[in-house]
Design a protein around this nucleic acid. Sequence first.
DNA 1: CGCTGACCCTGACGGC
DNA 2: TGCCGTCAGGGTCAGC
Length: 270
Amino acid sequence: MPELPEVETTRRGVEPHCVGHRVRRVIVREPRLRWPVPEQLACVLPGQVITAVERRAKYLLFRTAAGSLLVHLGMSGSLRMVAPDAPLRRHDHIDVLLEGGVCLRYHDPRRFGCFLWSAAGELHPLLENLGPEPLSREFDGQHLYYRSRRRKGPIKNFIMDGKVVVGVGNIYANEALFQSGIRPDRAAGRVSQARYERLAENIKQVLTTAIEHGGTTLRDFVGGDGRPGYFAQQLFVYGRSGQPCKRCGCPLRELRLGQRSSVYCVTCQH
DNA sequence: CGCTGACCCTGACGGC
DNA sequence: TGCCGTCAGGGTCAGC
């Protein structure tokens, strides 16, 4: 999946095909996702007009008068618009058929994603306790600095904690730390406010650039319109363990933090 | 409250 | 060719 740029690219891809359209039918072929797909969905959604497609963290929210369809793509999920008679591939788990003859199709080999329902006026529990959006004004160096005091865990885990800030996945956490010259295993509480200012700017910059590039660094990602995101993002560290640092030439090193690979340059990052 | 590790699943890839 | 272990973009949850 999709890091935040891929989710945003998906949102932009499907939005124009969904907004203003009425749902005709929901077909759930495989309900066993991260959480079981509620049976309620197939009853509640048909007849509803999709009024907006929004994103909060890496969740996509399809708004209707009755409530919201909450979709997460997990590690391997994708959503695309297809013709209703488009041939099914393996792992095409859900179809949301719209009036006007289009179909929103959910594909997810690993089934770590979810399709959930949230009634109108209710905030889904999964969306409670989420930190600010990384591209919002509320998210800045001061926020990171204050939230990090007395935290002993690695800064990389800290910026990937959704209660601190949402949408910073493994790839962009590695990249933003490299751009900021901070080692991923440094204790979060031992980074100055000045460095957090830089880090917040770099997180914004890295995510913004990725979104502009259509979101992908990943081979199997397919945008909402079904076309792969074109430009492979210029990655400085992620996936480059052992290769020379693009800035100083030293071989990049790798370590594991929270069961996720972290690549960094011993010379450029402290 | 903060942190660690287990866990949910399939598929791709490397080594033998 | 095949089998086996390892790893992969995410996030929640239990337990200390």
